[in-house]
Simulated scan of single mutants.
Amino acid sequence: MKLLQRREDEMPRFDFIVFTNCKEGTDDEFNDWYTHQHLQDVMRIPGVVSSQRFKRSEHQRDPGPFEWNYLAIYNCDTDDVQDIIGQIRARVNTDAMPISDTLAEKRFFCVFEPITDMQYPKE
């Protein structure tokens, strides 16, 4: 495997992966808040450059059960990923990043960094 080589002047890239669920019966309200408010709140943090949400498909390789119904991916260009993590922690449940009551308490947050360039099928 060829590891990703960065130019000296190129900013490192990280992806924040967040798995969540909503409280039972609150799907519509949860999705409205997450898509229209929370994504924008997170992207106001310097270095967070884009985001995308996903809902778990009913089509899976294995039968499950599956713990998480929703996934958000935040793309970050920064040389200080700890600063972004600290800013998220500082803003949670403030006017800068209110958290909806529809968000289930348990969630999973993890940071990844690429080790290869994007791969595409060979012709």
Rank of each mutant, 00 (worst) to 15 (best):
P12A: 11
F108G: 01
Q40Y: 11
R44N: 15
M43L: 07
V81T: 03
S57P: 06
D28V: 04
M97C: 12
Q82D: 11
P12Y: 06
P46V: 11
L4P: 08
Q82V: 00
F66D: 05
P114C: 07
W68F: 07
R44I: 01
I45N: 00
N93R: 12
R61P: 04
L3H: 11
K122C: 04
G64K: 02
R61A: 11
L103N: 10
M11G: 03
I17S: 14
I115E: 13
E10D: 15
Q60T: 15
N93V: 02
R44P: 00
T20N: 08
D77M: 07
D62S: 10
D101C: 01
N69V: 02
M118Y: 04
Q5I: 02
D9F: 13
A104G: 07
N75P: 00
D95G: 05
T20L: 10
S50T: 02
R6W: 07
W68Q: 09
V18S: 05
S51Q: 07
N21F: 06
I115L: 15
K2V: 00
E105Y: 11
T20C: 05
R107H: 12
A96M: 14
M43G: 00
G86Y: 03
I99N: 09
I17G: 03
E58H: 13
L39G: 03
Q82R: 12
P121C: 03
N69S: 10
A104F: 05
T94M: 08
F66R: 06
I17T: 11
G86N: 14
E29V: 04
V92E: 14
D83F: 04
Q119K: 03
C110D: 07
Q37H: 14
D79C: 03
Q5D: 06
G86H: 09
N75Y: 13
M118V: 03
S51K: 06
I99V: 14
Y120R: 09
L103Q: 12
Y34N: 06
T35Y: 01
F14V: 04
R53M: 11
